[in-house]
């Protein structure tokens, strides 16, 4: 790590550095919030502590949760740049891992509770319903990212690792499209998600242009 340079211009902010313990605590906090909330959601749905339909509740909770986590993980690098807080980047992986876990919990709720393991219907819905198809593609991308999120996998995959993980931009767009497409009306909320996603992608347009060159 480079030492904080003395500011040459007054407008330049001093880079932020914190003790490693704080970063660990921050990550632990993300771990506990994400797991406790997911566990609580399933606990409440199983025990009927939600008002109305527990299946819809779980689908909404896990779906929106996965999108929130994906957006937060995409927010990490612009935030670290703006704040000059390079250490913040360690939370990106934590957030991304939970985005994938929430997305898997979403598929699980759909398969186990919405369709109650009618496998034929699960498959035909994934193939025939475009909004489910795009959601499934996003989920597969996140799943592959989850499987290759370990340091060992990163070492082994070398340059391919980054190529695989660049697909997160496709995943987040498909996730928003899935949300937008799934609602019967009231496109406000999914449109806001899509808008925020497009802003986050615009912030890294140079990187994305490079990928497609």
């Amino acid at each position: 790590m480079t030492k904080a340079k003395p500011a040459t211009f007054a407008m330049l902010k001093k880079p932020i550095r914190v003790h490693r313990g704080w970063l660990l605590a921050f990550r632990l906090m993300i771990h506990s919030i994400a797991t406790v909330l997911l566990g609580l959601a399933y606990y409440n749905a199983i025990n009927g502590n939600v008002s109305g339909d527990p299946v819809q509740y779980l689908l909404d909770f896990t779906g929106i949760g996965a999108l929130n986590l994906m957006i937060l993980s995409l927010l990490t690098s612009p935030a670290a740049n703006t704040l000059k807080f390079a250490q913040l980047m360690v939370v990106r992986k934590t957030l991304g891992v939970y985005a994938a876990i929430y997305a898997l919990a979403h598929l699980y709720a759909f398969t186990a509770y919405e369709l109650q393991y009618e496998w034929g219907l699960v498959l035909s819905e994934i193939v025939e319903r475009p909004y489910i198809t795009v959601g499934m593609v996003a989920l597969i991308i996140l799943f592959v990212m989850l499987l290759t999120s370990f340091s060992a996998a990163r070492m082994k995959l070398g340059k391919y690792w980054q190529r695989i993980h660049n697909f997160v931009y496709v995943a987040v767009l498909l996730g928003c499209l899935h949300f937008l497409w799934s609602v019967t009306s009231n496109w406000t909320e999914p449109s806001v998600y899509m808008g925020i996603t497009l802003i986050l992608l615009y912030l890294r347009r140079k990187k994305i242009q490079k990928i497609f060159k």
Binding site: A45, G48, V50, S51, E125, R129, W181
Partner: peptide, 18 residues
């Protein structure tokens, strides 16, 4: 956007009551 062949009968607020 979805099949109408089957339905989920909601009997209660628990996952097991579907």
């Amino acid at each position: 956007r979805w099949s109408q062949a089957r339905e989920r009968r909601i009997l209660g607020s628990k996952l097991s009551e579907q």
